[in-house]
Design a protein around this nucleic acid. Structure first.
Length: 472
RNA sequence: GGCGCGUUCGUCUAGAGGCCCAGGACGCCGCCCUUUCAAGGCGGAGAUCGGGGGUUCGAAUCCCCCACGCGCUACCA
């Protein structure tokens, strides 16, 4: 999803800009939420954007394995050490008791948190009960003093220890929670920079205390500003935090996506708005990450996408159109899609497409043999009344009918239609909409003269006749 | 409720005491170009820098208070 990918992007860009390594680790410790395809989707998303990892799934490396579910012994070892040293303890409280406790705290307006019941158990008692009862392992947070976070983005943040909660670090199924997982793996994997979303900042003291208790060196912290939806709430599935591959599916280019994501909380300088990956890899700087949340602005994404489409090399553009036609045109259109037509519309389409999914509807009229389907009013709309539309169609029919099959070319067609201005006593721009609708089914799209040429004499004339007939 | 973070044009942002009666980009509006729609060119509106107090010769930039917004408050990450 967008938020996570942005964190990955910043980490990656930072590594690339500073000659570091970028490692991909899959945190799959919640077996209730395990989705088979998600690992594949994560990797595909990153690869689509061009984010490569020096170490991780599929590429391997010295810190394998890269799935947390395969590193359980590591977490258990850390947990055992902590229990031995009295910095963690087994907790036998049931979910029911925990729920009741929280309800009571809420009712009494007490700060929420584990009440420490099992912290008071003697080690002997705990070991005895552990033989028959399920348990979690909680970390015994320091309750005095303060925990200090030094963050690149936010500076110094101080948390009161007395407000800290003894969090669960090993679940009853033996899997670690995120808190234990990151600390153990970031250390084992020699992670130097923890770059993550701001929603994590409240749990930073947990991680910091864990590092201290384990005697390990914490990484450099950088908490990125949240990405907000249009409602100014943390981006949710509803408000645009869709899987990145959904953006790919609806026709966004990776270049646009990267450019867009890069500027969500970061900027290069006071004037750069268009930035390629190469420049990002060279100039990305954590010092320039801002602290305030960013609202996801789809208009800007669309603009960037259009920009990169316009910049696309002609041959890649043709391939792209061919692909989106095959995928987006209705089944009634016979396959394969004509390569010749694709090549001819390509330049006409370039300035007009914002999302690749716009392509198919824009060129559909070229491939279906049927007359386009459109509400009759659109034919008349811009010329004012039916009588005028009829005059336009009759005149166009006469003029174009005079163009021979061999002469059916853009220049001739243009001359013929421009020749309509005089007899009709109307400006071209005024009456042309009737023709657009008759041919393409709508008044906007690729240029008319080219469309007529592409359509061929027979089909073009046929559509005019049909339009004329429909007007009575 | 508690804790934390944040607050510069509608949006993304520039800004680290004088260069800022605040710059760029998207969006919006207008004009030009034009076969529609776009694209492109040119121009415009748009922020009294959340509010109030300080500090200073001088504050968007430093300090304090307030307000508002958001995040966290799980055996989810």
């Amino acid at each position: 999803h967008v938020g996570n990918i942005r964190s990955a992007l910043f980490s990656w860009a930072y590594a690339r800009a500073n000659g570091g390594q970028f490692l991909l680790r899959i945190e799959d410790t919640d077996r209730n939420r395990l989705v088979e395809t998600s690992t594949g989707a994560i990797m595909e998303s990153l690869r689509w954007l061009g984010i490569d990892w020096d170490e991780g799934p599929e590429v391997g490396g010295p810190h394998a394995p890269y799935f947390q579910s395969q590193r359980l012994p590591l977490y258990q070892k850390a947990a055992a050490t902590l229990i031995d040293e009295g910095r963690a303890y087994r907790c036998f409280c049931s979910t029911e008791r925990l729920d009741q406790m929280r309800a009571a705290q809420a009712a009494n307006k007490q700060p929420p948190g584990y009440d420490g019941l099992c912290r008071r158990l003697t080690p002997e008692e705990a070991i005895a009960r552990a033989r028959t009862e399920p348990f979690t392992v909680r970390f015994a947070m320091l309750k005095d003093g303060q925990t200090e976070l030094n963050d690149i983005v936010r500076g110094r943040v101080v948390f009161e220890n007395k407000l800290q909660d003894d969090f669960v670090m090993v679940k009853s199924d033996g899997y670690p929670t995120y808190h234990l997982g990151v600390v153990v793996d970031d250390t084992e994997m020699e992670i130097t920079h923890a770059i993550r979303g701001d929603e994590w900042i409240s749990s930073a003291p947990k991680h910091i205390q864990l590092y201290e208790a384990l005697g390990w060196e914490p990484p450099v912290w950088a908490h990125l500003p949240l990405i907000l939806g249009p409602d100014h709430k943390k981006l949710s599935k509803r408000s645009g935090d869709t899987a990145l591959l959904d953006y790919k599916a609806s026709g966004y280019l990776p270049e646009a996506m990267i450019n867009f994501l890069s500027f969500l909380g970061w900027s290069l300088d006071d004037h750069t708005a268009i930035l390629g990956v190469d420049e990002l890899k060279e100039h990305f700087d954590l010092q320039r990450v801002v602290a305030n949340p960013a609202v996801f602005d789809i208009d800007r994404l669309n603009f960037l996408n259009g920009h990169y489409i316009r910049e696309m090399a002609p041959d890649r553009w043709i391939e792209t159109i061919a692909y989106w036609c095959e995928a987006g045109l209705p089944d009634t259109v016979k396959r394969p899609i004509s390569r010749e037509v694709v090549e001819q519309v390509a330049p006409l389409l370039k300035e007009r497409v914002a999302k690749l999914s716009d392509i198919a509807p824009m060129v559909e009229f070229l491939f279906g043999y049927d007359v386009p389907d459109y509400p009759l009013e659109t034919l008349v709309e811009r010329v004012g009344d039916t009588a005028t539309a009829v005059r336009v169609l009759d005149a166009a029919l006469t003029h174009l009918d005079a163009v021979s099959e061999e002469g059916w070319q853009v220049e001739r067609i243009e001359a013929s239609i421009r020749g309509l201005e005089e007899p009709l006593e109307m400006k071209l721009r005024k009456f042309v909409s009737v023709l657009y609708v008759a041919e393409m089914g709508r008044a906007q799209g690729i240029p008319l003269f080219d469309s007529l040429a592409l359509l061929g004499r027979e089909r073009a004339l046929q559509r005019l006749r049909t339009a004329r007939l429909r007007l009575g």
